[in-house]
Lab assay of single mutants.
Amino acid sequence: SLEEAIRRAEEALRKGQTFEYAGIRVTTQEALEKFRKWAEKQK
């Protein structure tokens, strides 16, 4: 689910890792916010 993907992205960010979902790379807090906004639109 998208909620699960967001949780995994947050977890990866805390560990300093890269999270990738549907071709979207989350490597920074800013990218995480963009990913969250994108995920909201997918619902």
Rank of each mutant, 00 (worst) to 15 (best):
G16V: 02
L2I: 11
K34G: 09
E3Y: 09
R7V: 09
F19T: 01
K43S: 13
Q29I: 13
G16M: 04
A9L: 04
A5E: 06
G23H: 05
Q29D: 07
T27R: 07
E30I: 07
R8K: 12
K15S: 12
S1Q: 13
Q42K: 10
L13E: 01
R25V: 15
T18Q: 10
E3H: 09
W38S: 01
W38P: 00
A9F: 05
R8L: 14
R8S: 11
G23Y: 04
L13G: 01
E40Q: 08
L2M: 08
E30S: 10
T27P: 05
A9V: 03
E20S: 06
W38Q: 02
A5L: 15
K15L: 15
E11A: 10
E11L: 06
E30T: 08
W38F: 04
Q17G: 11
I6T: 04
E10T: 10
T18S: 13
E40P: 01
R36K: 15
E10W: 06
R25D: 05
E4L: 11
G16N: 07
E3D: 15
K37W: 10
K43Y: 13
F35E: 00
Q17Y: 12
A31H: 14
R14E: 11
A22R: 10
L2E: 02
E4N: 10
R8V: 06
K37V: 12
A5R: 03
F35K: 00
G23F: 04
K43G: 12
Q42S: 07
I24H: 13
Q17W: 10
R25H: 12
L13I: 15
R8Q: 14
R36E: 03
K15P: 01
A39P: 00
L2T: 04
F35V: 02
Y21S: 02
R36S: 03
L32W: 04
A31S: 15
E11N: 07
E3N: 10
R25G: 04
R25I: 15
A31W: 06
K41Q: 15
L13Y: 05
W38H: 02
Y21L: 05
Q29W: 15
K41M: 15
G16P: 00
R25N: 08
R25A: 10
E30G: 07
V26D: 00
Q42H: 11
G23P: 01
E11W: 03
A9N: 01
Q17A: 09
K43H: 11
G23M: 03
E11H: 06
E11V: 07
Y21I: 07
K34Y: 15
E20H: 06
K34D: 11
Q42I: 13
R14I: 09
E10H: 05
K41S: 15
Q42R: 08
S1Y: 14
V26P: 00
I6S: 02
E3M: 12
Y21P: 00
A9P: 00
A5Q: 10
Y21Q: 03
F19M: 02
F35Q: 00
R25S: 12
G23K: 03
F19P: 01
R14T: 09
S1F: 14
Q29A: 12
Y21A: 02
G16W: 03
R14W: 07
A5D: 03
I6V: 14
I24D: 01
E20P: 00
K43I: 15
T28R: 02
E33S: 07
Q42N: 08
F35L: 09
A22N: 14
G16R: 03
A5S: 05
E20L: 06
L32T: 00
T18C: 14
R7S: 11
A12K: 04
L32Q: 01
E3C: 11
L2G: 02
K34N: 12
T28C: 06
L13P: 00
W38K: 01
R36L: 13
E30K: 08
K37Y: 11
T18H: 13
W38V: 01
L32F: 10
R7E: 09
V26Y: 08
E40W: 08
F35G: 00
A12Q: 06
A5F: 12
R14K: 13
R36H: 04
E4G: 08
I6H: 01
E4T: 09
T18I: 15
T28W: 04
R25F: 13
G16K: 04
T28Q: 03
T28P: 02
E4M: 11
A39H: 03
R36F: 06
Y21E: 03
T27C: 10
A12F: 07
K34E: 14
G23A: 04
E20G: 03
A39M: 08
E4S: 10
E33P: 00
E11G: 04
L13K: 00
I6L: 12
E10R: 05
T28N: 13
A31Y: 04
R36A: 05
R8A: 14
K15M: 14
V26I: 15
Q42E: 08
F19L: 02
L2D: 02
K41L: 14
E20W: 08
A22Y: 08
K15E: 11
G16T: 02
E10N: 05
A39D: 01
Q42C: 14
A5P: 02
T18R: 06
K37I: 14
E33Y: 06
E3T: 11
T18E: 13
Q29R: 11
R14M: 12
G16S: 04
T27L: 06
E40C: 08
R14N: 10
L32G: 00
E10G: 05
A22F: 10
T28V: 03
E30A: 13
S1E: 14
A5T: 08
R8N: 12
E20M: 07
Q29S: 09
E20K: 04
G23I: 02
I6E: 02
I6A: 03
E40L: 09
F19Y: 09
I24A: 03
A39V: 15
K15H: 12
Q17K: 10
E10Y: 07
A22G: 11
A12H: 05
K43T: 13
Q17T: 10
L13T: 03
I24N: 04
T28A: 04
E20Q: 07
A39E: 01
T18D: 12
E11Y: 03
K43Q: 14
T28S: 13
E4W: 12
T28E: 03
Q17D: 11
R25K: 14
Q17S: 08
Q17F: 12
Q42M: 14
S1D: 14
A39L: 11
T28K: 02
E40Y: 08
E10L: 06
F19S: 01
Q42W: 09
K41I: 12
S1V: 13
A31I: 06
R25M: 14
K43F: 15
T27S: 14
T18P: 14
E20A: 05
K37G: 07
R25P: 06
E30W: 07
K43M: 15
R36D: 00
E30N: 07
R14S: 14
Q17P: 02
Y21K: 01
Q42T: 07
E30M: 08
R36G: 01
S1K: 12
R7F: 10
Y21W: 13
F35M: 04
R25Y: 12
F35H: 00
R36N: 02
G16A: 03
R7T: 09
L2N: 02
A12D: 03
A5H: 06
A39C: 12
K34V: 13
A12E: 04
R7K: 13
Q42L: 12
K34W: 15
A12N: 04
R8T: 07
F35W: 05
K37E: 14
T28F: 03
E33A: 10
K41E: 15
E4D: 14
A39Y: 07
Q17M: 13
A31E: 15
Y21G: 02
I24T: 04
I6M: 08
E33H: 06
K41W: 13
K15A: 14
K34M: 14
F19Q: 00
V26Q: 01
A9H: 01
A9S: 03
L32A: 01
F19I: 02
L2P: 05
E40N: 07
S1L: 12
A39I: 13
K34F: 15
I24E: 03
G16D: 04
Y21V: 04
A12T: 05
R25W: 12
T28M: 04
L13F: 09
F19D: 01
R8Y: 09
G16L: 04
R8M: 14
K41G: 14
A9M: 07
A31D: 15
K37A: 15
T28I: 03
F19V: 02
R36T: 06
A5M: 14
T18A: 15
T27V: 07
E10A: 08
Q17V: 11
Q42G: 06
E4P: 03
E3R: 10
A22I: 06
E11K: 05
F19K: 00
K41N: 14
F19E: 01
K37F: 09
R7H: 11
L13H: 03
E4A: 11
E40V: 06
S1T: 13
E40D: 10
T27I: 06
L13D: 00
L13R: 02
F35R: 00
A39W: 08
K41V: 11
Q42A: 08
S1P: 12
W38C: 06
L13W: 05
E4H: 09
T28H: 05
T27E: 15
R36I: 15
E33D: 13
